[in-house]
Computed example of a mutant assay.
Amino acid sequence: MNTEVKSAARVLDLLEYLAGCSEPVKLKEIVAALGFPKSSAHALAQTLVSRGYAIQDATERYVLVHASRHQSASRALEARLLSAAHPIMEQLRDETGETVMLAVLTVRGDCRRIAKCVSRQAVRYDIELDGLSDSYCSATGRVLLAHWDPALTDGYFARAHLVPRTPKTITDPGTIRGMFETIRAEGIAVSDEEHVTGSTGLAAPIWGREGKVIAALNLGVVTLRYHARANELAELLRNGARRISERLGHKSSPNPAILATVPRPPRALSDG
């Protein structure tokens, strides 16, 4: 006897379908893919939205929120963040031609990616959303650490294993800490082939209504393309992060310390 509850099975089918979609999908695409009646598909999708498991963007497309299980408060916060960020991420992807990602910091100081809009170019940067990434050698992590509580940042460096991910990875804690003031002043961090060979990351902070950095917007760029248009990409990224912050209720003000050029990554110090 089939003991599967039909409505529960449909919810799981919808979750699994959305988890496999690299782009937001319309209701008619859900109906076509899963064979649900339109009214049922709409009700199920709206239930996921109301519970914070998915968001519906301005064009009425659905996208899954990639959050940990049993963390409903965190999931609701991420749903609001994604709702504000996703249309800007898509626009930034189309403006730059590069992959755009959104990430937050865990309580231990690691980066957790929660959304991405992958470049449509044949040669592009891409990475799975599942799992954590090292903050010390990624642009995203450095932006978030630079705006984190200093005591928590001290704790992160005390327990993190700073190992070279590539020949260019900077592993000296003092050098990395020395970047933070510049990152805060210029509103951007750059990791040039320190995390993945052949890829350059740029990241800018996203500010919440309360005036604290709550996430980072990242561009993952093929290094050869990055060096040809570094300043342009940096300005587009800053603008995207500012617009997301404003959509979240942050009142931004001009920062005279922000420069028109990209900061040059410092040379690695010898560990010997």
Score class of each variant (00 low, 15 high):
2 N>G: 11
2 N>T: 12
9 A>P: 10
9 A>H: 12
10 R>Q: 14
15 L>V: 07
19 A>L: 08
19 A>V: 04
23 E>P: 00
24 P>C: 04
25 V>H: 01
36 F>P: 03
37 P>S: 12
39 S>M: 12
44 L>Y: 15
47 T>E: 13
48 L>K: 14
52 G>V: 03
55 I>P: 04
56 Q>A: 15
57 D>Y: 05
59 T>P: 00
64 L>W: 08
65 V>Y: 10
65 V>H: 10
69 R>I: 11
69 R>S: 11
70 H>C: 02
72 S>F: 15
75 R>C: 14
79 A>D: 13
82 L>M: 15
83 S>G: 09
85 A>L: 02
86 H>P: 03
89 M>D: 01
90 E>T: 00
92 L>Q: 01
94 D>R: 14
97 G>Y: 15
100 V>H: 04
101 M>V: 13
102 L>C: 10
106 T>F: 05
106 T>C: 02
108 R>F: 04
110 D>V: 07
117 C>R: 13
118 V>T: 12
121 Q>K: 10
122 A>H: 11
123 V>R: 12
126 D>G: 09
127 I>T: 13
127 I>K: 01
128 E>A: 06
130 D>I: 14
131 G>R: 00
131 G>Q: 02
133 S>F: 09
133 S>H: 09
137 C>M: 11
139 A>E: 07
140 T>R: 03
140 T>E: 03
141 G>E: 01
142 R>C: 04
145 L>R: 03
148 W>D: 06
149 D>Y: 05
152 L>C: 11
154 D>R: 07
154 D>T: 05
154 D>G: 03
155 G>M: 09
158 A>S: 13
159 R>H: 12
162 L>V: 08
163 V>T: 07
163 V>Q: 10
168 K>M: 02
169 T>Q: 11
174 G>T: 10
174 G>E: 11
176 I>Q: 04
177 R>Q: 10
178 G>V: 08
179 M>R: 07
184 R>N: 03
186 E>V: 14
186 E>G: 09
187 G>F: 12
189 A>R: 06
190 V>Q: 13
190 V>C: 15
193 E>Q: 14
194 E>T: 13
195 H>M: 08
198 G>I: 14
200 T>G: 07
202 L>Y: 04
203 A>Y: 00
204 A>K: 01
205 P>F: 15
210 E>M: 02
210 E>R: 00
216 A>T: 15
217 L>Y: 08
220 G>M: 06
220 G>K: 00
223 T>L: 13
224 L>P: 00
225 R>N: 12
225 R>Y: 12
226 Y>Q: 14
229 R>P: 05
230 A>W: 09
231 N>G: 13
233 L>T: 09
237 L>F: 04
240 G>F: 01
241 A>Q: 02
242 R>K: 07
244 I>H: 05
245 S>V: 06
253 S>I: 05
254 P>L: 02
254 P>Q: 08
255 N>D: 07
261 T>R: 05
262 V>Q: 03
264 R>P: 00
266 P>Q: 09
267 R>F: 04
272 G>V: 01
